[in-house]
């Protein structure tokens, strides 16, 4: 017990402990804060954690070296490890591991990766007010799914289901969760319709636009060509797309966002 106490009081181990605590705070602690206020939370990006840790390291070094005695005691374990005969093995391990670690980090930073360069990409870019679908101009603003007022809903769902299984399944998956067979080959990965952040937040006309125009039709802020979504207007008719949209909502259980709610706010 006293041994542990001596360790905790020693500046060197205090510094190590502080750094570990800081890391835990930055990596996990910060992400725990927003839920306290009932907000949505997310892990802290690595770039920020690295930045914070650098600052914390500088702070800790300043702390241990601002007092003469503390600084001398802080250096003791380092000095001992590098000099003492009975610490030969520790020394050897440190001298091998530290360069290896630096080498690995350098390698990891510089090796070519498959990942696309980081771009600032908006996931739900603002839709245009109208699009040209196979030469026909379609006004998206205020547009509702025409099939909802025409024919029988069960039939549309059947058509949609058939089209989904013929075309969409490979990427968006059997359970509409974006986990199709090919899904892992893409970046960004296909959207999960089960997630409450996708079609649940969108009007059917927005979904129609995204299906019809696909990845190439994304505006600049959506980083065109990053998405592998094909341009479906080349393969499907207007009604087929509307049918598959009905199927998506029917199967996932979400309700499409309606125009009454969304016309008020052009910006979000």
């Amino acid at each position: 017990m006293s041994r542990v106490g001596a360790w905790v009081r020693h500046p060197f181990w205090q510094a190590v402990l502080l750094l570990i605590l800081a890391y835990l705070l930055f990596k996990f602690g910060i992400a725990l804060l927003p839920p306290l206020l009932g907000m949505h939370s997310a892990p802290v990006p690595t770039s920020v954690v690295v930045q914070y840790m650098l600052i914390a390291l500088v702070g800790v070094l300043i702390h241990v070296s601002s007092d003469e005695t503390r600084w001398r005691r802080f250096k003791e374990p380092i000095h001992d490890t590098m000099v003492d005969a009975d610490k030969r093995w520790v020394r050897l391990a440190v001298l091998i591991l530290v360069p290896l670690l630096i080498g690995w980090v350098t390698y990891d930073q510089t090796r070519p990766k498959v990942e696309a360069p980081i771009t600032l990409r908006s996931i739900h870019p603002a839709p245009p007010s109208q699009i040209t679908f196979r030469g026909k101009t379609i006004q998206l603003t205020g547009l509702e799914n025409p099939l909802r007022h025409r024919g029988s809903l069960t039939e549309h769902i059947e058509t949609g289901k058939r089209i989904y299984y013929q075309n969409c399944l490979a990427c968006h998956g059997d359970r509409l969760d974006g986990q199709g067979h090919f899904a892992h080959g893409f970046s960004p990965t296909p959207l999960s319709f089960a997630d409450q952040g996708t079609i649940a937040q969108l009007t059917e006309s927005f979904v129609f636009w995204r299906v019809a125009k696909g990845g190439p039709g994304l505006p600049r802020e959506g980083a065109p060509w990053s998405s592998a979504m094909p341009v479906w207007e080349d393969y499907l008719t207007e009604d087929e797309i509307w049918a598959v949209i009905i199927y998506l909502y029917e199967q996932s259980g979400w309700k499409p966002r309606t125009w009454e709610e969304s016309t008020g706010g052009g910006e979000h």
């Binding site: 927003p34 997310a42 600052i55 702070g59 990942e115 908006s122």
Partner: peptide, 29 residues
Amino acid sequence: CWIVWATPHTIIATREELAAMGGSHHPFL
């Protein structure tokens, strides 16, 4: 204070992190 001051508004993040944050703004940072 230094940490607060050096916190960027638009954060550099990988795709996964961006997806988790739902954009390039972290809910707390």
